[in-house]
Each structure stands twice: as structure tokens, then as C-alpha cells.
């Protein structure tokens, strides 16, 4: 293996890790605050790409990528609120909320996927990249789009972290995740913050969709595979803290890059699950779980 190969694997691992981290944080946020797994998260990714494409692309409104991103993120935030109100809130008082939420979010995902297929057609589309051209670094070539992802993703993640750690609303969200009863009795408007965590998660997923849309062709089911990866990341990293899934995302991304290079893409998914199972056997709370942060 040459030094270039190692670098190449590292860089593609970091690109993957960045995308997984953005997805996993949203998933973990909803998981910790509401205690449910949102299967519509993958559709937020898809819709993020399609909303942006509709506004940005010449075959749509043609207003350019910046407008597309702005619209997409805002629309996803609104959609997140709506999803919480329709898919979760009516069932909050039920004992089997976790199970009901699996069904409602899965149903929504199926509905949205087919709605996208009907309205936008199955033909593959592609979003404009964040930045044009290629850059070369340490002797390897890298698209400017991917380089932008590697830089932007940590900034976004850091902002989310700052929001959760330093603001009152962020503290309140963490409080709900830890003890909902006590949060209620401290006067925290829990229902409103549920909507907020859904909105935030959906916006982050939308960004992932936009990033992915500049790398691969878009399709109505483009969010499914990333969502499964994000699930692996969240379980692997442990959900006790926001930093757990982020760190795990980069570990998984790198691992995936190594697997793709060494054993091929066919066995990569299986290898990831084997590693996840092995980690959970040794550390049931996840690689970075065990203590809340």
C-alpha cells in the first residue's frame, strides 16, 4: 500500500464520517429527547436533496444552489415540526409509544418516498456541488465538494454542540433527555422542545441530502442506506451523549473506507455489523457510552 492509497482511504473515510455524523446527531437527538427511533429520518435526507434541487436546478426554479440550500433547510425544519405533530404527539400518552412511533414514522417514510417518486419521477437527478473543481492535497486528488463537506460538517456539528451545551434551550433539551418528569416539573415546555428537536434533526438530515446530492445521483430512496448507517453509528457510539455518535461516525466512516478498499463494497456492510455486534458484546452501552455527557 502506497502512502497515497492510505491518504485516499483516510480522506474518503472522513468524508463518509462527516455525513454519518450529521445524520446520527439528528437521529440521536430525537432518540434521547423523545425516546423513539424516527424511521422517517432517511426521507428527510431525500427531501433535503429534492427540495434543494427543485429550487436550485435549471429544470426546477433555477434560483441557484444557495437559495436551494436555504429553502431546503427551512422547509425541512417546518416538516420536522409537522412530522412531530402528526406522527408522535397524538400518541405521546400511550404506553406503547415506542412501537406506535415505529409504525407511524415507517408509514410516513413510505408515503413520502412514493410521493417523491410520483411528483419528481424516478429519473436520477444531480445537485450542483458546493464548490466546483478538484483540489489536490498531499499528492491525492479530491473534489472541492468533498473538501467542503469535510470542512463544513465539523463546523455544523460544533454549532449543534455549542447550542446544546451553552444555551438555555439546549440545556433544557438535555434535561428532557435525562429526566422528562423532572423537566416537566421544572416548567420546561417539553412538547415544544420535542418539536424543536425534530425540526433540528430534519434540518441536519436535509443538509446531508444536499451534500449527498452533489456526490451521487439522487433517487427517492437515497436516504434509506444512510439512515441504516446512521443507526449503526448511533448504536455503536452510544446515545448517552451527543459526542458519542459523532466520534463513532468518524470511526465507522474510516472503517468503511478501509473495508471497501480491502474486502470490497459487497462485504463492507456485513463487516460493519460484525464490528458493531462485537463492540456491543464488550461494551453494551456503545463504544463511547457508559457515562452521560
Amino acid at each position: 500500500m502506497t502512502a497515497e492509497t492510505v491518504l485516499y482511504i483516510l480522506v474518503s473515510g472522513v468524508v463518509l464520517g462527516s455525513l454519518y455524523a450529521l445524520m446520527a446527531v439528528g437521529l440521536a437527538l430525537v432518540w434521547t429527547t423523545l425516546g423513539i427511533f424516527n424511521f422517517a429520518h432517511g426521507m428527510f435526507i431525500t427531501l433535503g436533496a429534492y427540495f434543494a434541487w427543485t429550487v436550485a436546478d435549471g429544470n426546477g426554479l433555477g434560483w441557484g444552489l444557495a437559495a436551494g440550500i436555504a429553502f431546503s433547510v427551512a422547509a425541512l425544519a417546518a416538516l420536522g415540526c409537522l412530522a412531530e405533530a402528526v406522527l408522535v404527539r397524538p400518541f405521546l400518552k400511550r404506553d406503547n409509544l415506542v412501537l406506535v412511533a415505529v409504525i407511524t414514522t415507517l408509514a410516513a417514510a413510505t408515503f413520502l418516498e412514493n410521493a417523491t417518486l410520483l411528483s419528481r419521477g424516478g429519473r436520477s437527478k444531480q445537485l450542483a456541488p458546493l464548490a466546483e473543481g478538484n483540489i489536490s492535497m498531499f499528492g491525492i486528488g479530491l473534489s472541492a465538494h468533498e473538501a467542503a463537506i469535510v470542512v463544513i460538517a465539523p463546523l455544523i456539528l460544533y454549532s449543534v454542540w455549542l447550542f446544546l451545551q451553552r444555551t438555555r434551550t439546549g440545556s433544557a433539551l438535555r434535561a428532557i433527555a435525562q429526566n422528562q418528569e423532572a423537566a416537566l416539573l421544572a416548567g420546561i415546555p417539553v412538547a415544544r422542545l420535542y418539536a424543536l428537536s425534530f425540526a433540528l434533526a430534519a434540518s441536519l438530515a436535509g443538509l446531508v441530502g444536499i451534500f449527498l446530492g452533489g456526490i451521487k445521483f439522487m433517487s427517492p430512496s437515497m436516504g434509506t442506506d444512510p439512515m441504516v448507517k446512521a443507526l449503526v453509528v448511533v448504536i455503536f457510539g452510544g446515545i448517552a451523549s451527543i459526542s458519542g455518535p459523532i466520534r463513532a461516525a468518524y470511526v465507522i466512516g474510516l472503517l468503511e473506507a478501509v473495508c471497501i478498499y480491502s474486502i470490497g463494497i459487497y462485504w463492507t456492510q456485513a463487516a460493519l455489523f460484525v464490528v458493531m455486534i462485537a463492540v456491543l458484546m464488550i461494551r453494551p452501552t456503545g463504544l463511547f457510552g457508559g457515562q452521560r455527557a
Binding site: R168, S171, A172, R174, A175, Q178, N179, A182, A183, A186, G187, I188, P189, S241, R292, A293
Partner: peptide, 24 residues
């Protein structure tokens, strides 16, 4: 509560501040 209930990952200050901000 009977068990010492707090928002564990928050600092003691943040715990009290939450009540101060949202409580009244």
C-alpha cells in the same frame, strides 16, 4: 424526589438555572 434526581450531565449551576429560567 425520594431518589436524588438531577439532570446529571448538566452542572449544578445549570440544573438550578433551568428552574430559574423556566420555573416561575
Amino acid at each position: 424526589y425520594q431518589r436524588e434526581t438531577a439532570f446529571d450531565s448538566l452542572t449544578a449551576y445549570q440544573n438550578i438555572a433551568l428552574g430559574a429560567v423556566f420555573g416561575p
